[in-house]
């Protein structure tokens, strides 16, 4: 009898363990929802701005870019990006292509200080500049891997980071195939382009688009029939970066060469 009760009570013990785990899971879900609500409520958007009405994107015409780097400089200023030459929300690359050789690619200080004369004494068949930034991927791997949800996609298509929530695990930086993210030493969180969210929600242009002297960068709204992006997509041979990875970028390039990484 004693044995039986011993066995029984141990079973009960196991059951207790199971029950407490279930309870924990339940509580966790509750807390989760509470948090999500709280964070939603905390987002302050300007009066009259409804994220659901927009789908922001960018178009870049590689043939127009002159590599002045003003976009990268403006971005650093506008968004308080650390000054070091290895933290960028946007940067410009120069490609020098000679025949079928591997291209020579450079981006000294992200192109902010402009580019030195060409790298090789040889004549290049092609040389061009490619501005890069976060592609605000429709199926963004960075969002997928973030363990807390600090990286999220806003209803207007902008992939953003909640800096008060990010734990700084840097998983997202590993997951971005385009090198668009960096670890901000000041905030100790991940960081990247948010299309100047503070500006676009007030009807302004992102800083890089604003300062581009040749209009190589254009800002667009896929949900706005008036937006110039529709003509851009219709009239050009358009490509995105690394389409094979199926991240569905929303930064569209015209005149992109196969040399571009």
């Amino acid at each position: 009898m004693n044995q039986f009760s011993n066995l029984f009570s141990r079973r009960q013990f196991m059951r207790l363990v199971m029950k407490s785990m279930a309870l924990l899971a339940f509580l966790q879900t509750g807390v989760l929802f509470w948090f999500v609500r709280k964070s939603r409520a905390a987002t302050s958007l300007p009066e009259g701005y409804n994220p659901k009405d927009h789908k922001w994107c960018m178009s870049i015409d590689v043939r127009k870019c002159i590599g002045c780097g003003r976009c990268a400089a403006a971005c650093k200023m506008e968004n308080h990006v650390p000054p070091e030459p290895y933290y960028f929300r946007t940067w410009v690359e120069r490609y020098e292509v000679h025949g079928t050789d591997e291209p020579i690619i450079t981006s000294p200080n992200g192109g902010i200080d402009g580019f030195p004369p060409q790298n090789s004494s040889e004549e290049f068949e092609k040389s061009f500049y490619v501005p890069k930034l976060c592609n605000h991927c429709e199926t963004s791997p960075c969002t997928q891997v973030c363990p807390t949800g600090a990286t999220f996609v806003s209803p207007d298509g902008v992939v953003m980071i909640d800096y008060d929530y990010c734990i700084g695990c840097r998983f997202c930086i590993q997951a971005c195939p385009f090198g668009c993210r960096f670890f901000n030493p000041e905030t100790q969180t991940a960081d990247k382009c948010n299309l100047c969210y503070h500006r676009i929600t007030q009807g302004l242009l992102p800083a890089c688009v604003e300062v581009c002297p040749v209009g190589a960068r254009q800002f667009g709204d896929l949900k706005d029939p008036e937006s110039k992006i529709h003509a851009f997509l219709a009239e050009n041979q358009v490509d995105v970066l690394k389409p094979q990875l199926r991240t569905h970028p929303k930064v569209y390039y015209a005149g992109l060469d196969k040399a571009v990484k």
Partner: peptide, 17 residues
């Protein structure tokens, strides 16, 4: 970067990660 927020992973896990 923020060890003090580590518990967020357990309290509010983002399930696709």
């Amino acid at each position: 970067g923020h060890p003090e927020r580590a518990l967020e992973v357990i309290i509010t896990p983002h399930l696709t990660s």
